[in-house]
């Protein structure tokens, strides 16, 4: 969780500075943001799981950062007042555990064309924990984006905890039964694949085909699309890399796979991340590292309360060594490959 340790730990490695690669190989340094089209809202790091790859180090003990209703209202106002923002992307922790989750979703669908919720799925079929949450989200056509590291129990539980795969499959069956992930329903259930260790991801189309075939054959469950996301060398995954002596080889692998073509579609250029305290960041990863968005000619932090789309448009994006995670191979973002 020590973001400074992560930044300095990555910088200390004998790996060419990311910014130099941007400058020399892409010609896009400093990286510039355009007007945000997606507002990614972090409701807090509280989660019922403690996944080993989690870049925000979420868990049941993370009650330190929870978004207030007042900050949520500022998010809604920012979206309502800025035509460029079409999507609200709700994340956490487990956002459905936030006491104001349903209120926020109900209000978000009124101001945004698209609302998506990033979920670990384990609570979607848990009536005791989350009541009728599936039906609630379905009625509002909310898109679900669910982390599932692999189509087998062994890999998934190793990464996310004993019993998680079974709970996720039960939730997927339930969500399928109310239309999620089913053709023609208009209810999207997308999955996210993260490599189950210190290696890069396969091609999105190839692993999506594997997931579809195997989840249908083994579990009888359906989904719409699968997004591939490279494990970012921060948070709990950074700790794993250090403890297992994989940090240097992993960073070498990412740096050697640097793909200039991936830069154009990087999510930080069109997505703005709102921390639970309302501070704005260029992406979810910078949020974890405490690298706040830079406002031109300003010494104050950019916050959702003082949101100004025009000021943020064209700002310099803060980049550092962890950015190799988004530019390796086919590129990586919260919506999968960037090329």
């Amino acid at each position: 969780m020590a973001s400074n340790g992560e930044i300095s730990g990555l910088e200390a490695l004998a790996i060419e500075p990311f910014d130099e690669r941007l400058k020399c190989e892409v010609g896009l340094y400093p990286l510039k943001a355009s007007a945000p089209s997606t507002l990614q809202v972090d409701l807090g790091s509280f989660c019922n799981l403690k996944c080993r790859h989690c870049h925000v180090s979420a868990g049941p003990d993370r009650t330190d950062k929870v978004m207030t209703r007042s900050t949520m209202e500022s998010c809604l106002e920012a979206v309502a007042g800025n035509a460029s923002i079409s999507t609200i992307d709700i994340t956490g922790g487990a956002p459905e555990m936030h006491p104001d989750f349903k209120w926020f979703v109900a209000e978000a669908v009124k101001v945004a064309k698209k609302v998506m919720v990033r979920t670990n799925l384990t609570l979607m079929n848990n009536k005791a924990a989350c009541d009728d949450i599936g039906e609630f989200l379905a009625a509002r056509k909310v898109e679900l984006v669910a982390s599932l590291p692999y189509y087998r129990r062994e890999e998934t539980d190793r990464m996310r905890g004993e019993g998680v795969f079974k709970a996720v499959m039960e939730s997927m069956k339930y969500l399928n039964s109310i239309g999620y992930g089913m053709d023609g329903s208009g209810l999207k259930l997308n999955l996210v694949y993260n490599p189950t260790g210190a290696f890069m991801a396969p091609s999105q189309s190839a692993i999506e085909a594997d997931f579809r075939r195997e989840l249908t054959r083994r579990e009888g469950v359906s989904f719409n699309n699968l997004f591939v996301i490279t494990n970012m060398p921060i948070g709990r995954f950074f700790d794993f890399l250090v403890e297992s002596d994989n940090l240097m080889p992993y960073m070498e692998r990412l740096a050697s796979a640097f793909n200039p073509d991936s830069v154009e579609g990087l999510m930080c250029r069109t997505t703005l991340s709102v921390a639970s305290d309302g501070t704005l960041y260029d992406c979810d990863f910078n949020r974890v590292l405490g690298l706040k968005s830079l406002l031109p000619d300003s010494t104050t932090d950019a916050t959702i309360e003082s949101f100004d789309g025009d000021t943020l448009d064209g700002r310099d994006i803060l980049t550092a060594q962890h950015c190799y995670g988004c530019t390796a191979g086919a590129g990586s973002s919260c919506a999968g490959e960037t090329t």
């Binding site: 692999y150 087998r152 062994e154 890999e155 490599p195 189950t196 260790g197 290696f199 890069m200 991801a201 396969p202 190839a206 692993i207 594997d210």
Partner: peptide
């Protein structure tokens, strides 16, 4: 071993 994992294979 690494390539197989990176292509989406599992240890089984």
């Amino acid at each position: 071993t690494k390539t197989c994992l990176e292509k989406g294979s599992n240890t089984e």
